[in-house]
Deep mutational scan, measured.
Amino acid sequence: EGEAHRVLFGFVPETKEELQVMPGNIVFVLKKGNDNWATVMFNGQKGLVPCNYLEPVELR
């Protein structure tokens, strides 16, 4: 579910809505907001990550 994206930079959450991710993680974007935040799914957890920390990736 969602579009696959690769994480470019590590992100440490500052609020409980945000999700910690590391460079190279593959996350699935469920929704992109107008505020430059994306709702993503990673390892069964859902949370917010900055859009500019993500790049689309083709999964084969």
Rank of each mutant, 00 (worst) to 15 (best):
E17Q: 11
K31L: 06
F11M: 00
D35S: 09
F11C: 06
Q20R: 14
F11V: 05
F42W: 08
N43F: 02
K46W: 05
T39M: 09
T39K: 08
D35L: 04
P50I: 03
A4D: 03
L54D: 00
V49A: 02
N34P: 15
Q20W: 06
P50H: 03
G44V: 04
E55M: 07
F11R: 13
V27G: 01
F42R: 10
K32Q: 08
G10H: 12
P56M: 04
D35F: 05
K46P: 05
N52C: 12
G44T: 05
W37C: 09
G47Q: 01
E58N: 15
E3F: 09
M41P: 03
L19D: 01
M41Y: 08
G24P: 03
F9N: 14
V49N: 06
E3T: 12
N52L: 06
Q45C: 07
E58R: 13
N25W: 03
L54P: 01
G44Q: 08
V21G: 02
L59N: 14
E58S: 13
V29D: 00
V12W: 11
E58A: 14
G44K: 08
L8P: 00
N34G: 12
L54Q: 03
M41V: 14
M41Q: 12
N36M: 04
G33C: 09
P13E: 01
A4P: 14
V49W: 05
V27P: 01
N43K: 13
P56Y: 01
H5Y: 09
K16P: 14
V29I: 03
K31N: 13
V49Q: 00
M22A: 15
I26H: 04
N25A: 10
A4W: 10
Y53G: 01
N52V: 07
G44Y: 01
Q45F: 08
L30D: 07
I26R: 05
E3K: 14
E1A: 09
K32F: 04
K32C: 06
K46F: 07
V21R: 03
F28T: 15
G47P: 02
G10R: 14
L48W: 01
K32V: 09
T39S: 10
A38W: 09
N52W: 05
N36C: 06
V40I: 08
A4L: 09
V27T: 00
A38Q: 01
P50V: 02
N25C: 09
G10K: 15
G24T: 06
L8T: 10
E17Y: 10
G24A: 02
G33L: 13
G33K: 11
G2M: 11
P50Y: 01
Q20C: 10
N36A: 07
G33R: 13
K32P: 04
H5I: 01
F9A: 15
E55I: 05
L59Q: 15
G2P: 08
K16T: 12
W37F: 09
P56A: 10
A38T: 04
T39Q: 12
V57P: 02
M41D: 11
G2V: 04
V12E: 13
K31C: 10
D35N: 13
P50F: 08
L19N: 02
K46S: 10
N52H: 11
F9L: 12
L54V: 04
E3D: 11
T15M: 12
E1K: 11
V27L: 04
L8V: 08
N25Y: 06
N52G: 08
G2Q: 05
V29S: 02
W37P: 02
G33T: 13
F11N: 09
G47W: 02
F9C: 12
F28Q: 15
R60N: 08
L30R: 06
K31I: 06
V21P: 02
R60G: 15
L30G: 05
E55W: 05
K16Y: 06
I26F: 05
G47F: 05
N25L: 01
G33W: 11
E58P: 12
L30W: 05
I26V: 11
A38I: 03
A38D: 01
A4S: 08
P50G: 04
N36R: 10
D35A: 06
E1R: 11
V49T: 01
A38C: 07
D35V: 02
P23V: 05
Q45I: 05
G47S: 04
K32W: 08
T39Y: 11
V12G: 06
V49D: 00
M41W: 12
G44R: 07
F11W: 11
K16G: 11
E3I: 14
G44C: 08
V57D: 02
K46E: 11
M22S: 15
L19K: 00
V40K: 02
P23G: 04
L8N: 05
E55F: 03
N43H: 08
V57N: 06
K31A: 13
V40M: 04
L59R: 15
V57Y: 09
L59E: 15
G2K: 03
Q45E: 15
F11E: 02
V57E: 03
E3H: 09
M22W: 12
E17L: 09
W37A: 08
E14I: 09
K32A: 05
K32M: 08
V7P: 00
V29C: 09
F11I: 04
N36L: 06
G2D: 01
L30H: 08
A4C: 06
I26M: 05
V57C: 12
G24V: 03
L48Y: 12
L19F: 07
M22N: 13
E1Q: 08
V49I: 08
G44I: 00
F9Y: 14
G33S: 15
D35G: 10
A38K: 02
L48S: 09
K31H: 15
E55D: 05
Q20F: 10
V57L: 13
F11T: 15
H5V: 03
V29W: 01
G47A: 03
P13V: 04
E14S: 15
E14A: 12
V49M: 12
N34C: 11
V21H: 01
F42L: 09
L19W: 03
F28A: 12
E17I: 07
V27R: 03
G10A: 15
F42C: 10
E17C: 10
H5T: 03
L59F: 12
G33Q: 14
K16D: 13
N36I: 03
K31E: 14
Y53K: 08
L59W: 13
F42D: 05
T39G: 03
G44S: 04
K46G: 04
T39C: 05
P13K: 02
A4H: 06
